[in-house]
């Protein structure tokens, strides 16, 4: 093909393209214009943000189960967590257990008396590599990209409990029956759950959105710290830098974001 013919063809092509783009551009422009008057959904100005939320628990400051009662109570209350007598139906977001149970495999034969007798707080670790999220077939449990919280979408959960099998920390509970009759006092600000879905600690995502720290952190009066793991100046980073901390089952590679000072 000689070069002049090719040139002509190219010109034809380009100009026809140009002819087409005009209306497309117009259409786009009007749509953009119209969208200005449309609805918007945004984050509140007061909302707290982080790359990855994390918690540091200073276990030295908890001597007995009574010290933890107010924290657990605070969480239970604002999240409408039911109380079941039947242990099989239990729902727990935040609870306490012994060192041997919280850190199985890390229990030395002989252990410092303080650690042996001290209660340990347990909650979801909001892992950076959460196996529960990997397992969920519907993305009903997911890791929120904006701040790393592992959340539950109760609307979507089919109740297959794969996430419970996948979580190596026993952080999840299933609603074996309708929880409503077992909630002492319902807080209308937070939904209850329905039978047949899984639930767990949500790092108080609903409070962070309003600029408040998690309820348990607030109730702990300094015994718990909460902050951004990836902000080198945050309180949690400061504590991790200056204290020896351990995490639960670190060897499994889930990268838990709850640190314990022992």
């Amino acid at each position: 093909m000689d070069s002049s013919r090719r040139r002509v063809l190219q010109l034809f092509g380009i100009s026809s393209l140009a002819l087409m783009t005009r209306p497309v551009y117009n259409a786009l422009a009007t749509e953009k214009h119209a969208q200005k008057a449309k609805e918007q959904m945004i984050r509140g100005d007061k909302a707290l943000t982080a790359k990855q939320w994390a918690m540091v628990i200073d276990t030295r400051q908890f001597e007995s189960a009574e010290d933890m009662e107010p924290l657990i109570e605070a969480c239970n209350k604002i999240h409408n967590i039911p109380h079941f007598e039947n242990q099989r139906h239990e729902i727990k977001w935040l609870w306490e257990d012994h060192y041997h149970n919280v850190f199985p495999g890390k229990g030395a034969r002989f252990l410092s008396e303080a650690v042996e007798s001290r209660p340990f707080l347990v909650l979801c670790n909001h892992c950076e590599n959460p196996p529960c999220v990997r397992a969920c077939p519907t993305q009903a449990t997911f890791k929120r990209a904006s701040d790393g919280i592992v959340l539950m979408d109760f609307h979507r959960c089919i109740g297959c409990r794969f996430c419970m099998a996948a979580c190596p920390f026993g952080a999840r509970s299933f609603n074996w029956r309708d929880p409503r009759p077992f909630i002492k006092e319902t807080d209308p600000k937070f939904p209850t759950r329905t039978k047949g879905v899984v639930e767990k600690c949500n790092f108080c995502a609903e409070r962070l959105a309003e600029g408040k720290l998690p309820a348990c952190v607030e109730a702990a009066e300094g015994k718990l710290a909460f902050g951004d793991l990836y902000d080198p100046d945050s309180e949690v980073r400061e504590l991790i830098k200056t204290n020896y901390t351990i995490r639960r089952k670190q060897e499994l590679g889930t990268e838990p974001c709850v640190y314990y000072i022992v």
Partner: peptide, 26 residues
């Protein structure tokens, strides 16, 4: 057996509405 094991069986189609390739159950 999978259906009788589900807590919310009427939502079973969520598995295909939101296909999740990293889930073995999918």
């Amino acid at each position: 057996f999978i259906i009788v094991d589900l807590g919310q069986p009427m939502r079973i189609f969520n598995v295909w509405i939101y296909p999740t390739f990293h889930s073995v159950l999918f």
